[in-house]
Design a protein around this nucleic acid. Structure first.
Lengths: 132, 132
DNA sequence: CTCGTACTACGATGGATGTCAAACTACGAC
DNA sequence: GTCGTAGTTTGACATCCATCGTAGTACGAG
């Protein structure tokens, strides 16, 4: 699927995002978010877990607060997929990178979808835990 | 992600599925359906289109009734992914292979999810058509 | 039995994807 | 400035995946 290549060549001049600290991160606009990309992003167990965790706590979480069974570079990769698909918003705060669900945008584009997905994931988690 | 290999070695003796004609097709049981697999299946534009079409007409459709921009072998591939993920049920009727959504099973496992997904897909189709 | 239709199976292929290790950058604290 | 923490980048690698073409199988009609 044609994932648009993105560039990180902005010098210190091009700070487009209003982050609390430097370093801008490319996010798709709400209108650019594609359902297929969202579904693809959530079709990976680790990314689904991240999103569920993010939904459970209402607040934003830094990448390091997740206990994931992969290395740091893989973690970076998964968070980037989630961001570039439009599922989460990432902002630097000092040395930490805070992650938050883009609830509003997703609800606008696909009403009810995120909640259904989270409910489905929760249900399955229970089902798998009970079933052994 | 680990798709369980399946076999098609049942001789003329093992007709497990109650098809109108021979040839059985392996389907996952309802309890075996995984959310991640469903999302992965639907994250492909062609497969999403198939599912939308299948939902629009309430009836079952044969593979050849879809006008897809890929060859026959690729079409076979996509239908198999949908079947093996538990999204559709396939049954042979004569030389045709009829496809139907597994609405009941999916609703049982993930209440409301399929409708949200279909609504989201429909909404996006409208949005993309209008936006050019 | 033969033929046509509908679909499958089997490679092959180019591109995406998940994973890691190692080296690197950015920031806050001291 | 130096150090440690947090996250990135790069390159490598194995696997997966969508796609195709060609050859093959299954079934109904004649």
């Amino acid at each position: 699927m044609g994932a648009e290549k993105r560039f990180r060549d902005e010098g210190p001049a091009a700070v487009t995002d209003i982050a609390t600290t430097g370093r801008a991160l490319p996010h798709p606009e709400r209108e650019q978010i594609r359902l297929e990309s969202v579904l693809h992003a959530l079709s990976d167990p680790i990314r689904l877990e991240i999103v569920c965790e993010l939904a459970a706590r209402e607040s934003e979480l830094s990448c390091s607060q997740f206990d994931l069974p992969v290395t740091k570079s893989t973690t970076t990769h998964h968070f980037r997929v989630l961001r570039e698909s439009g599922v989460i918003r990432q902002v630097y705060r000092g040395t930490a990178k805070m992650n938050g669900l883009r609830r509003g945008d997703l609800e606008d584009l696909f009403p009810g979808l995120l909640d259904s997905l989270l409910a489905a994931a929760g249900r399955q988690a229970v089902r798998l835990r009970e079933g052994g």
